[in-house]
């Protein structure tokens, strides 16, 4: 990331970040910042909300109003922020465990409401901060700290899940495809409704090491090759849904407009 972006948007005293060498979270965060910079969002009215986990430390690094909340609850806090002040541009930074395990219920209901939140999930398929336990997106058979012989659980597809639950903008990219990821996030900002971007990102320390995936550049290369915009035998990246539907806070505002002043 260029120095200008760091000067403009980061809380420099909070750097360096806590992420491990080879982690992709920094790239994902840079993509968010690039997307913010090139968007027409009012920079004074951006709120970053995160949960708990490696990715969720991102809220402390960015110089906006920011809330580092409890585990899984970022979307629920963000719902309160957005409803209380619909002028806020609310960006939720979360991880796969935070968003789809402990926070899964909040995710699907925010999708259902189509509330105007921008959720960026840093999906590294593992609980990194607690030492590498399997998450809802850990691939079957992968070895983790709590599945030494390979996990027997099946994994969530975050994009399918969100689309089915009613999100109106759904996209996936990877931290290897930096430009593409930035575009996906920009698309999320443009949608007036619930937007989710799944950013696939490597965790060499907790995931790669146990599954013998090699050094960080090898893992990054593997990530690049495992996805495709077109090849259906690979993990698809791109925009899976982008539809305009009534947004929650706007709909609620109509109710308020009709009722306001009628208090007895």
């Amino acid at each position: 990331m260029n120095r200008e972006m760091i000067e403009k948007y980061f809380r420099k005293e909070q750097l360096p970040h806590i992420w491990c060498p080879g982690c992709g979270n920094g790239i994902a965060l840079a993509a968010i910042v690039d997307a913010i910079d090139s968007s027409d969002l009012d920079k004074e009215k951006i709120c970053i909300v995160s949960g708990i986990g490696c990715s969720s430390r991102a809220s402390g690094y960015l110089n906006f109003d920011s809330i580092h909340t409890t585990h899984g609850r970022a979307i629920a806090f963000a719902t309160g922020v957005k409803m209380a002040n619909p002028e806020m541009n609310v960006i939720v930074i979360t991880g796969d465990g935070d968003c789809t395990a402990i926070g899964g219920n909040h995710l699907i209901h925010a999708c259902r409401r189509n509330i105007d939140l921008n959720v960026i999930v840093f999906n590294n398929n593992i609980y990194g901060m607690t030492g590498g336990q399997y998450s809802p997106t850990t691939p079957k058979s992968a070895k983790t700290a709590t599945s030494r012989h390979g996990t027997v659980e099946r994994q969530f597809d975050i994009c399918d899940l969100s689309r089915s639950a009613g999100a109106t903008y759904v996209a996936r990219s990877t931290v290897y495809h930096y430009r593409h990821l930035t575009d996906m996030i920009k698309g999320a900002f443009k949608n007036k409704g619930f937007s989710i971007v799944e950013a696939l990102t490597p965790c060499p320390v907790q995931y790669g090491r146990r599954n013998k995936l090699g050094n960080p550049p090898d893992i990054m290369k593997e990530l690049k090759e495992s996805v495709s915009l077109t090849d259906s035998s690979k993990i698809k990246i791109g925009v899976f849904k982008n539809e305009s539907e009534p947004e929650y806070t706007s709909e609620y505002h109509k109710l308020v407009e009709a009722e306001v002043g009628k208090y007895e």
Binding site: V49, D65, I67, T69, T70, R73, I75, A76, F77, A78, T79, G80, V81, K82, M83, A84, N85, M88, N105, H106, H109, Y252
Partner: peptide, 19 residues
Amino acid sequence: IQMEDEISSMAAIIGASLC
């Protein structure tokens, strides 16, 4: 707002209070 559970209700009021 009627939230999806009690946990999120508590979270939402904190978010709103911050605003």
